[in-house]
Each structure stands twice: as C-alpha cells, then as structure tokens.
Design a protein around this nucleic acid. Structure first.
Lengths: 368, 368
DNA sequence: CTGAAAGCGCTAACAA
DNA sequence: TTGTTAGCGCTTTCAG
C-alpha cells in the first residue's frame, strides 16, 4: 500500500507512453501484440489498479449508479459495537440462548428496502453498473445525497427522502428516478405501484364476506404516502359499497407490530368488528398476536388483512391475506429505467407502475 | 441536465476565483461572510453539484467504502423483466393469487448477505462513508472488483470471492478486509465467526440427549468453507465423545431447502436416526417439512438442528434449534475495521472473531 | 501503431 | 481574506 502505481509508472516500466498504457486497457486491439504484452507485464508487476476518480474525470462518466435511502431512524441509537473488543481470542466463540421467545421481526421498513436493494443490485449487475448505496443523514443541507450525485451517473431516490428543491437541483446534473410514492406530473422518471387500486380491490373482497358491516381500518403514520394511498383505496371501496365513510372506525398505528397489537387490544375491549384491515403486514401480524392471546379465532371471529407481503405474513397462523409489493422488481425496474435514461437522455419521462399481487390466505377466508 | 455547472461557472457568476468557491464548500469559515453568501447564491442559482471524480482525484480519497460480493449464481437466469411493458396504464394494477402454498423462502445465501449489507450500511453511515456495493461478474480477470478498488478508499471482500493474487494486488493500493471464511495468517484484516467451536458445542448438546448414537450430518456443498468448518466442529465433538467418525452417516445437500427435504426423505426410507444436524437452516427446514409430511414428530422421534439463525428458523413448527450468525454485526465490524485501518494504515492486521449464538429451541429438546 | 499534449473539475500550497 | 497555479491520474484527439 506504499504509493499506488499510476499510468506513468507502468509506461516507464514498459518503455512506452502513457497513451499506450491507456490504450492497452481500454482498447487492446488498437495496440501491437508485443507492445501490449510488455504493458500488461508491467501492469501486473506493479500491481497497477487504475484510479476510478481520474478515469471518471476524464471520461465524464463513472459506471456507477446511486441508490439513496432515507436515514436509519431507529437504528441511529444502535449500540456502538466495539470491534476491537473482539480481536481473536478475547471473547468466547459463542454464547448460548435457551428457548428464546417468539421472533418479533421488528425491522419496519428496512425489510422492504433490503429487497428493493437486492433487485437494484441484480439489475445493476446485469447492466454492467456498480451500485452506490447512500443512506441519508439528518443534515440540514442533505449533503450526503449531493455527494452521491457528484459521483454517479444516475440516481434512484426513494420518494420523499429528498426535499423537492434539492432533487430538482440534482436532476440538473444527472438523471433521477423516483421510487415509490405518488407519481406526480414532474419531469422525473417514476417507478411505483398501484397501492390504492389494490387496496380497493382487497376491500371489496372483504366486504363480500362481511356484508355491509364496514371493516375497521388500521392506518399507518399520517406522513406516509403509501399509507395515504392505501387509505384512499380503502375509502373508495367503502363509498362504492354505499357505506358512509364516517361510519368507519379508523385506528392509527405506526407500522410496527406493537402498534398492531395495541390496536387489536383496544378492539377486544371495545367490541370486535367483522374485519380488521391494516395498512401494513407488521401491524396485522401484531393484531393476530393479540387476538390469539385473547383466544379470538381468525378468520372465524373476524377477518384480518395486511399489506406488503413480507415473509412473516406467509408464516403466521393463520397465514395472512395481504397484498404483495413487488419489492425486488421495484428495485430492478428503477435501475432499468435509469439505465435506459442514460442511453436516451431526452426521451420523455416515464412512469412505470408495477402490478401488486393480492394474496388471499386463511386470515380472510371465512368458513361458510 | 444540459451541461453541469463547474467551479468555474460558479466563480464567474460570483465574481471570485475558483479557489474561493472551493473554500466556501470545504471550509466556509475561511471566507468572508459576504463573499461566502455571494458564492452560495451562485451555487444554488446554477444548481452546482461538485464532481466527485474531480474531488477524489485532487484529494486522493473518495469517502467511499466498497463491499464486494460474489455473483448472483442462480439469479443470473432471472427473467429479463421488461420494464417498458409497465408504463403506467399498460398493465392491470394488480393480480390475484388464491391461497398460495406455504412459503418457500428459497434465497440461499442472499438473505445472509442482505443482513451483512445492512450492517455495513449502518456502520458506514455512522462513520460518514458511503458504501459502494459490487457484485462479481464471471469475468476471467475479475475486472469488477478491480474497478471498484479504483474508486473506493477501502474494500470489504467476502472470503473466497476474489482469487488470492488479485486480492494481493488490490491490497497494494487500498486496505482490504476479508469477511468470513478461515482467517489465515495473511496480512489482511479479517472478520470471522467461530463456526467450528459453535458447531462442536451444539453437537455436544445433541449428544447429551441422544447418548452414543451419533447424529446424521447433513453437509453443504463441499466447496463451502463455512460448511467445512461446521463439519470440522461436528466431527471434533463426535471423536471427543469416543465415537468413530466413520460410523457417522453423512448426507450431502447444497444448502437449499429442497435438498434438505430430499435428505430427510432418504432417512425416512432408510430408517430414522436419533438426530439430524444440518450445516445450515434452509436444509434443516426442508427436513422439517419432509418429516411433518411423513407424520414424524420432531423432536419426539428425532432431533433436528440447523445453522445460521435465519428468520424462518424462528417461525417454523417446531421452532428450529440453530446457531445464529451475527450477520448485521459482521457487516458492521468489517466496516469498522476498515475505517480504523484507514486512520492507522500501518497498524498490525487484526483478526476479529465475533461470537455466535447457540439458540436452543423445541426442535432439539427431547421431552424427558 | 505510437507519442505528445490538452484537458476533465477540483484542492491546496504559495503569494499577494 | 483572496487569487494564482500546479498538480491529481487518466482519456483522447491529433500528429507522426
């Protein structure tokens, strides 16, 4: 790690000019085989690795795509993990935990982002890009995202993770794709899902079973755009069925399992509805927990539905009816749109809307 | 997105030199407030975003850390997803799936990497770095990782994802941390877990219950270093108990749930052992599936254990006894070690070994 | 086929 | 406090 070799070092050693070194690396065929060999020898002898910065500067492109997520809110307080305490031998190689309690799986939205990231990764890989993942800090000026914008060829941004005016500025420099959230008539490319439509359909199906008694809606935090769209779909279907919206009981949670549990407990003491429709799976699962503890049978006593299609929803008892987000596809689509934009910089902005999948499972299937 | 503004543009517009522009951005206090304001105005007026490449070149550091993973083997054949087919309105907003069968959750090692990535992300965020995630292609020359190496300040590499000689060359240019896998006496920093010791302990505990009848071992693919270490721990405990290794039945799987199921089916027809110890959770869960179908009771009829501590292992019935990898901590530790190395480039290489957690659940608790 | 030289956009002495 | 200037390492005409 002394001092990294540069083109000059390689050129010297091979007895050629730096231009030739560059050629050998970029277009090998434009160089006579003997010369090429000499250069390649020098390259490996010196352990030459080209500087991405220099290359990026000269080429005016980096081959890197960026993915920007909002910050780790909860994780911020994660313990400070002191690695140095674990230098080999300093700690026992394992610990033992007896019979721990049922898994909670309380990573609210991170699970979602993990999968989106995986999809993005996959598609970036296919398209020959590397992905740079940035996580928002709570800087007033959003400098992280600006930093990223300076080092990538294009940026995928999670909706509402960046203030509009900052986004507008970034878009001046590189193509930006907005992921999820409402697709407004702006000039960015968008990749979204049809939250409202799917929730409306799910609601219709629940109403088919419950008749005219409206389900209770368990909403998310009121600053969540997804939550808002889901509510919109729900209320649309409700009105459509001729039920007055103000007859509907709406409980508010915060997308965590605990808040679902609390909501269910409240219902248990206030009197059970025919159905509970939650704005996400975590809350629905929490409710399932509470109902089980109280000896209330789902779906016999009431129907429960979720939204998102997280893995735990398929593993619960009863398994949870939900709407599956195409998380991997969202990531892939975003990168694909970005790559396309890079090729045709002035095509019209596109709004890609991926289909959701309504997954009907036992939690909503009332035995007749 | 016309032509991105540069320092020169900003300087012109603000009527100052480029040095002053740079100063305003790097050390604002070194500039008279009025001048600073003028520059900042020009910056926003022009939507100036500094070029990371130029900055990186001049500063000789990028503020980016790299994380390199081996390629998507299976995913390679992932469907080619044609986004353009989904331009808004072109497809139905949702589809409906009735009563799908039990979730498979067949992302072999990706789940592991997801979590490691999340940990790395978290720590990078804390330390003020951005993370660049690269996924290996099957290039003969490993150009992806070399490309990455050229654009980051330090690199975390998953063990065995990069040939030794390539790694050695990269390490000439930037610090490298090797994640997981055996920590040999090389000059890199290592972050690993104690696979063998934990597996040995788990085996002892199983033997406590089964007495001298040796468990069947369900191994992973033979090119997996983790798998090898686990086998090593298992066989160590076996010998220690005075059992001859060649008395042990070893089945080989490929870490997938399906292969676990097949192994279990074979046992069912060949005759049940007292215990089945799998080299990872996926296979153990597959075995659980097969036993359940066959009406065989776990742990009453035989004990089953896994390894890794994936979420599904906590949600199965019976819940699976396993050894939990500190995946998030692995990612965090790797980044932390890297950051530390960046500060003190010539400290001795460290080998961090994180403790595993043996999680005892019902699948291994024989009722007495 | 190869070399010379002009940038790419920014930082950091060094002067003023 | 501000400006001048010399790189940082690489790509890419343009000559030869």
């Amino acid at each position: 790690m002394s001092k990294a070799a540069t083109v000059y070092d390689v050129a010297d050693r091979a007895g050629v000019s730096i231009a030739t070194v560059s050629r050998v690396l970029r277009s090998p065929d434009a160089v006579r085989p003997v010369t090429r060999e000499r250069v390649l020898d020098a390259v490996s002898a010196l352990g030459y690795v080209p500087s991405g910065s220099a290359r990026g500067l000269a080429e005016r492109r980096t081959g890197v795509l960026g993915l920007y997520f909002p910050g780790f809110d909860a994780a911020e307080e994660a313990p400070a993990l002191d690695v140095l305490a674990n230098i080999a031998g300093a700690t026992p190689p394992f610990t033992i935990v007896q019979d721990e309690t049922d898994a909670e799986g309380e990573h609210p939205s991170m699970l979602f982002l993990d999968e989106v990231l995986r999809g993005a990764e996959l598609e970036a890989w296919k398209q020959g890009f590397v992905l740079m993942v940035g996580v928002g800090r709570h800087d007033p000026d959003r400098s992280t995202v600006r930093d990223m914008a300076g080092r990538v060829d294009g940026l995928v941004v999670l909706a509402r993770s960046v203030p509009d005016e900052v986004l507008a500025r970034l878009a001046l420099r590189i193509p930006v794709v907005v992921l999820s959230g409402p697709s407004r008539g702006d000039s960015y490319d968008h990749v979204t899902v049809s939250n409202a439509e799917a929730m409306a359909e799910l609601t219709r199906r629940v109403l088919d079973q419950t008749g005219d008694t409206p389900p209770v809606f368990l909403a998310g935090p009121d600053d969540s755009p997804d939550g808002a769209e889901r509510w919109e779909g729900f209320s649309h279907a409700i009105s459509e069925a001729g039920i007055r919206i103000d007859e509907v009981v709406v409980l508010r949670g915060d997308f965590t399992r605990a808040s679902g549990r609390r909501a269910a407990e409240q219902l248990i003491s206030d009197g059970l509805p025919t159905a509970l429709m939650a704005a996400n799976d975590q809350m629905a699962l929490g409710a399932l927990d509470a109902f089980r503890s109280a000896g209330i049978a789902v779906p016999e006593d009431l129907i429960v539905t979720g939204f998102d299609g997280i893995e735990a929803a398929a593993l619960s008892r009863p398994r949870l009816t939900t709407v599956r987000q195409p998380m991997i596809e969202l990531g892939r689509a975003a990168v694909q749109v970005l790559a396309r934009r890079l090729e045709r910089p002035d095509a019209d902005p596109v709004a890609v809307r991926l289909p959701l999948e309504i997954v009907v499972r036992e939690s909503s299937l009332r035995p007749s």
